[in-house]
Design a protein around this nucleic acid. Structure first.
Lengths: 217, 217
DNA sequence: CAGTGGCGGTCTGCATGCATTTTCCGGGGC
DNA sequence: GCCCCGGAAAATGCATGCAGACCGCCACTG
């Protein structure tokens, strides 16, 4: 029987979401026939999806089969270096090119988040939206594309509880500062504000990793 | 009959090379059955290859079928902005992390090219190798991957005779300067040298585009 | 004469069968 | 007790059949 219902998204998105949502964890082996059964399609679309994900380095080959890629500590650092640079560029370009309407949307996102400091899940989702809005405000399609890739790879990093205590409030202040700089058309300031924001996020992640290692042994 | 001989590379590389080599030009429509026949495989591997290329934005959808993506002037500019930033980052990291052996390889590449100033094709090939060597010397796998993507997209830019007259010699000097900076561990200097190198290359391309537009009417 | 409806061809997308290869497991030998 | 080898099961990779959608063309009608 064909794929059945209507709201059916394609296999690619399904697998991507499963990785993103933690259903498939780094190191897991993905077997075509299993996925085909799970998502109720034939192996063909699954194969295509897997190859696309492999192209983006979200999956890696181990022997002949595919596993969810994982990032060791070094790769995580490398990823943050690149992310930092690209996000800073996006901020700089946003300060130069954002329309007043885009700035206003950013501003409102920050205000909305003020009401959510106690809801880590919602904050995390909004955080991603906030950053994406900055990317778009750069008006550089290539940059947006590259940053998409970065964010996807970030899903592979060792999973950490997404909001360390207190991070919410601090991040809020950082976000507000970023919007200020963009609104003021201060390119260097926006660049710096974003770099420092990412840096704090990286430090937070490292601390969480360290704590996790301790728990595990 | 199966794919026949031995030296057979996969469909993905075949199509990629064809785009890179100009056999398929931006705007060309790629029909699965045609490609299957041309490369003497079935439609399945072709389909997979096409989807992978689409994921990298080397192909775009037009209605239901796939065409080779093309970059308008704006996109070209956007691409150069990102490229500039990433290459500069690579140079900075190379200045920090390159091993003496890697520096030596870079140095030798520049010297070798001195003998080739009259062979644009060879120069162009070596140019790409030179830059890739810098990327690798950054010792940042993510950066290497992102830059790979950038270089692939560059194949989509309006085709220009790859070496404008005189560009060979100038580029040689620029390359030498870059290596100097990396060898001296001067991160800011390497960053700046690479930015300026890319900038000159971009200017050259713009001039060629302008000349071409004039020729065409 | 113009507009519309139907019809054929073509291409994409998915399913499935088949061959090849790898991997895993067990038994036997050293 | 450990290692090596052989066979079976499973998983990948490719080919091909089939259904559905879209495009263009032509005829038919108002």
């Amino acid at each position: 029987m064909p794929a059945s219902k209507s709201g059916q998204t394609d296999a690619y998105s399904l697998i991507l979401d499963a990785i993103d949502g933690g259903t498939f964890r780094p190191g897991d082996r993905l077997v075509e026939s299993e996925l085909a059964e799970r998502f109720n399609v034939s192996r063909t679309p699954i194969r295509e999806a897997l190859q696309r994900l492999e192209t983006q380095s979200l999956l890696a080959r181990e022997g002949r089969s595919l596993i969810v890629a994982s990032l060791d500590h070094n790769q995580t650092s490398e990823l943050y270096v690149v992310r930092s640079e690209l996000e800073a560029l996006a901020a700089r370009l946003a300060a130069r090119h954002a329309t007043p309407e885009e700035v206003r949307v950013l501003r409102e996102m920050v205000l909305t988040d003020d009401a959510l400091v106690d809801d880590p899940t919602a904050l995390s989702r909004n955080n991603r939206r906030f950053h994406r809005q900055i990317h778009l405000a750069s008006h550089n399609r290539y940059l947006v594309q590259q940053l998409d890739l970065v964010y996807r790879s970030m899903a592979l990093m060792a999973r950490t509880s997404l909001a360390a205590e207190g991070r919410g409030l601090i991040a809020q202040a950082e976000h507000a500062k970023i919007v200020d700089m963009i609104e003021a058309r201060d390119e260097a300031g926006a660049d710096e504000a974003l770099r420092s924001h990412i840096s704090v996020a990286f430090v937070t992640r490292l601390k969480q990793e360290a704590a996790q290692l301790e728990r595990e042994g």
